[in-house]
């Protein structure tokens, strides 16, 4: 029966498997690397203290003093972007690692063991999939208060079913293949086959899905901060910066809001390009 599987969505997103011009992949890597390095070495790179208020620079236009201009409080946008990249990148990374681990464990157990265990895990995933990630994150805030810790834990749980569904279906289809039967007939233990032979065969596809998830998680966490439920002002964070600067838009001051918005889009695009390229390269020979 075709239930609404995330697998389908992934297939969809990966369907355009054509040879990309390598330029877009190089550019994506350079952009992500630059942002990551800037975030790690923020105190060395940022021209200003991100929280330094300067009333002479309110809504300053981009120029030598402020490369990307300044916001309603005269804070340097570039410095805030650099510091903001820390939460913007780190939080999704944690979510992706945690949800991949959780999802792979559940998916591997369900797909390899089958039977009642598969049915129970499948039902659990069905229920969790009915909760969109952002909704679980908002609910976590409602329960545990504002900030990033509760949403990150909530999103790790919310994204695990997508990874688990994919892993389960891949593992189940591998398990039905004669090469797995051949390992059994040769006398290998089931656990060894699952962990040492089947898991590596499904890993590239699962990895590609997780990479794509990074982009979504980043966008959703930024959205949460945009709603004022995630990272709290005055801490520099891309989503929170848009939230703070939203009022200025009506007054015609676009840049303080648009710059972090564009940054989110750029990172999401870059991550997607890399994810698809990596899955193309590693997964070239993977039977799916």
């Amino acid at each position: 029966m075709s239930r609404p599987t995330p697998t389908l969505a992934i297939k969809v997103l990966r369907s355009s498997r054509r040879r990309r011009v390598n330029a877009s992949w190089m550019i994506s890597i350079i952009v992500l690397a630059a942002i990551t390095l800037a975030a790690i070495f923020a105190p060395l790179v940022a021209p200003y203290d991100p929280d330094h208020i300067d009333f002479t620079a309110i809504y300053a236009n981009p120029g030598w003093a402020h490369w990307l201009g300044a916001d309603a409080l005269g804070r340097d946008t570039l410095s805030r972007m650099i510091y903001g990249a820390r939460t913007a990148l780190l939080a999704p990374l944690v979510v992706v690692i945690a949800s991949t681990f959780l999802g792979v464990v559940l998916g591997l157990v369900a797909g390899w063991r089958g039977g009642w265990l598969d049915a129970v895990i499948g039902r659990l995933l069905d229920v969790l999939l009915a909760f969109p990630a952002l909704l679980i994150a908002i609910m976590a805030v409602a329960l545990f208060g504002k900030g990033l810790v509760a949403p990150v834990i909530a999103m790790s749980i919310a994204y695990a079913p997508f990874v688990a569904r994919l892993t389960r279906s891949l593992v189940a289809s591998e398990r039905a293949r004669p090469y797995v039967a051949a390992y059994r007939v040769q006398g290998f233990a089931g656990g060894w086959i699952a962990l040492r032979r089947v898991l590596p065969n499904v890993a590239p596809t699962v990895g590609a899905q997780s990479t794509l998830n990074f982009g979504y998680v980043l966008a959703e966490l930024a959205g949460l901060s945009f709603l004022g439920l995630g990272v709290q002002a005055p801490t520099a964070d891309w989503g929170a910066m848009i939230n703070e600067s939203q009022a200025g838009i009506v007054g015609g001051y676009f840049l303080p809001a648009i710059i972090p918005a564009v940054a989110v889009v750029i990172v999401v695009v870059a991550v997607n390009v890399i994810g698809e390229e990596v899955s193309d390269r590693i997964g070239g020979g993977t039977p799916t």
């Binding site: 293949r177 004669p178 090469y179 051949a182 007939v185 039977p287």
Partner: peptide, 27 residues
């Protein structure tokens, strides 16, 4: 048990129909 598995494997082996699916694609 492991010994049991290996013992059985030494008794009988199998060659499958589909040569495209009966080998591990990564090996």
């Amino acid at each position: 048990r492991r010994a049991d598995r290996l013992d059985r494997a030494r008794k009988v082996q199998m060659v499958f129909q589909d040569p495209y699916l009966s080998l591990d694609p990564r090996m």
